[in-house]
Amino acid sequence: MSTSITEDDEDVSRRDVILITAGGFAGVLGVASIWPLLDQMNPDSSAQALATTEVDLSHMERGQAITVMWRGKPIFIRYRTDDEVAAGKDVPLSELPDKVARNANLPDDAPATDENRAAEGKEPWLVMIGICTHLGCIPDGQAPGSNKGEFGGWFCPCHGSQYDTAGRIRKGPAPENMAIPPYAFTGDTKIKIG
């Protein structure tokens, strides 16, 4: 920037202060205007208003599984047989790749025992978000005759993750047990998810 020789130093430094301040204001305005443009992509307040799903389980029999929708996600509900519960209980924690329960109704560090995975006080009932923790596919194993994998639970067809009868990851690339959503029994055979 050209400055004429008649300008004294005081003028130059005063001008620099003003220009730097102006630049600062422009910067603040620019950065502040970016936030609304980014934040608008977050879930909006209608999505944030937690929807709940109520499910009537009275028609279910031991060994049967159903899938319901909650907040756009599939929820696996399995009414496990005694064998399946026993299989879940038999596994020592040390054998599990992921040792925490991933149960939204329990503390974050609760161990991944079969009790901690199943419904409180109703161990045959397993309610979990049916999404493979690897890359988000929906594992097979809900329908009778579909592939339940080596551990009798679920098998993810995308990249071969294997889950046991308590929905815990046992083999394959998935890092975590399938998540348990917040839910509660509102009656003997009724649950409310969310």
């Binding site: 920037m1 008649t6 220009l19 102006a22 305005l29």
Partner: peptide, 15 residues
């Protein structure tokens, strides 16, 4: 900001 820009404009255009 407008006041600062006015001062900045005056300073730059001086002379």
């Amino acid at each position: 900001f407008a006041i600062i820009m006015y001062l900045a404009k005056k300073a730059v255009w001086k002379g």
